[in-house]
Amino acid sequence: MTFEDRKGRGRYSSRSDRLFTGLTLVMVVAILFLAGLMVLQLLVASIPAMQALGWHFLVGMDWDPVHEHFGALPFIYGTLASSLLALILAAPLGIGVAIFLAELAPPWFRAPVSFMVELLAAIPSVVYGVWGLFVMAPWLRNMVQPWLSEHLGFLPFFQGPGFGVGILAAGLILAIMVVPTITAVSRDVLMAVPNHQREAMLALGATKWETTWKAVIPYGRSGIVGAIILALGRALGETMAATMVIGNSLDISISLFAPANTMASIIANSYAEATYGLHAAALIEIALILFVITLILNIVARLLVRRVAIGPVRMEA
């Protein structure tokens, strides 16, 4: 091939490259535009609620569409309570599985187990909801809640009648749903820990367990925290399964047995009845708050996870 040939081909491929670059750029811009438009629309559509209700919206405990009283605190509380419960249950389990997969399991065993765990994330949430409502909730009502109130009933969390559905049920369902996130991200984080860290600890006379606990996990700590925050984002926004098992109550109760509502579930439950402006605007403002919270959590989580992959930041002392 002569120089002229190559030059010709180069020119040709550079023209097609430019076309391709332009095309994909249009797609990127379209996506960004869509996301921006969504935020803008949420913002605009919730302005009536912001003007009419102000800060009361965030701290008010009354939700009465008939009398146009809108306080979203019960839903904010319900979302936080169910999500935190989910994390408390899912974090040890998810991290434990991740440690097993990254540090202990032989490679032939790692792949199938990872696959199974990630399969949990592929199950549609309505399936979790149905299972939660018809299988888990009765089990909670008949077995778990009587046991908890008998043995731990002195704690405010386990008082009152157990209906099965409620914050406990939502927390449990959410826990099962976020375990794959915590496991998959933590496993990748632990596997990104360089081997020289393990060997350094082993060479000092550490057991396998001490090596994992004192060298591998501290090195990956920020990434594991990122995995948990990512899972928190999932749990906060999860709608269908939580809606089906949380019991749909407008009250705030410290007891985990009590029914409640999450921000997502109140929207899913009442958008059809939001027939006049302020009711709809109030629901959209809830959506906006949820969107902003999950967006911030996702950004923070990703930054933390990335920090492990690129290694610890060197700061001048």
Binding site: H196, A200, A203, G205, T207, K214, A215
Partner: peptide, 21 residues
């Protein structure tokens, strides 16, 4: 081997201090 390694120290090719400590 864990006890053997406490009696025999090792320094590696790449400096590998524990960054979290």
């Amino acid at each position: 081997p864990v006890l053997v390694r406490r009696r025999i120290g090792m320094v590696f090719q790449k400096p590998n201090p524990f960054p979290a400590m």
